[in-house]
Amino acid sequence: MLQLDPSEISEVIENGGVIAYPTEAVYGLGCDPDNDVAIGKLLELKRRPWQKGLILVASDYSQLAPYLDESQLTRKQLESVFSKWPGPFTFIMPVRPDISKLLCGSFNSLAVRVSAHPGIQAICNKLGKPLVSTSANITGQKPAMSVDDVIAQFEGVIAGVASGALGLEASPSTIIDAISGKVIR
């Protein structure tokens, strides 16, 4: 399986490909959040029902803003979100009505994170937008913790793996509802 640098990754993603990449705690699968064909391919590879929705990761909030409906959030709620970013915190936030249902699933919200992981930041900066993020595993299997784990599940069906190392988090990101402040995971 090919090891890809950020410029190669952006080309693959812009052409509708799916890649694996290291995140804060596990390897993720990613694609262009504005390409429903690519999202559908990712969901099929993972065997994940579209109704569950996905996460978007970004290098800064401005990349996520076009997908979100900030008018449903108070200034205090937004300040709470911003106080935890960049970092291993995913927030469930209200979504714009024109966003693909493949991203938000059967919900009127979207899971989003501004990552501090240098690899994710490099990919998103090169793309100029967020990246779809879901753990690199077939639904029901353990998340990939190494390139070998990614190869075991996805060799020949994804374009490659971003070079870099996993972050130091022991578990996937904490998920928080931005409106209620409730910790979901």
Rank of each mutant, 00 (worst) to 15 (best):
E70D: 12
V57G: 06
A162Q: 10
G160F: 04
L29P: 00
S83C: 10
I92G: 06
G105C: 13
K52A: 05
P143S: 00
N108H: 14
A136Y: 04
V114T: 08
I99N: 04
D98H: 04
E11A: 15
Q72G: 15
V26M: 06
A144H: 04
L166Q: 03
F107V: 06
K84D: 13
P22K: 02
E70S: 11
A20C: 02
G156A: 02
E155I: 03
S135H: 01
R185Y: 15
D34M: 11
P172R: 01
L29V: 00
S100P: 05
P118K: 04
E24R: 06
K126L: 10
G119Q: 06
L110Q: 07
L102G: 12
R75C: 11
A116V: 08
P172K: 01
L64I: 07
L64M: 06
G105L: 11
S115F: 06
I179T: 12
V150M: 01
M145T: 13
L78K: 14
A65G: 09
Y21K: 01
L103V: 03
I175L: 09
A25M: 08
E24K: 07
I138V: 05
K101Y: 09
A25N: 08
G167Y: 03
F107C: 08
G119C: 05
I123T: 03
C31F: 09
T139D: 01
L78H: 13
D36G: 08
L56D: 03
L43K: 04
G160W: 07
I120Y: 10
Q3Y: 11
L42W: 09
L42Y: 10
W85F: 09
A25E: 09
V157Y: 08
N108V: 12
H117G: 02
T174K: 15
L166K: 00
V132H: 02
S109T: 15
S115T: 06
H117S: 02
V112I: 15
I13H: 09
F91L: 04
I19T: 01
S171D: 13
Q141E: 13
S62W: 07
R47T: 04
D5R: 11
K126S: 12
V114K: 05
G30Y: 08
D177V: 08
L103C: 03
A20Q: 03
A38Q: 00
I55M: 09
N137M: 00
G181E: 14
A159Y: 11
P143M: 00
S10A: 14
S135Y: 01
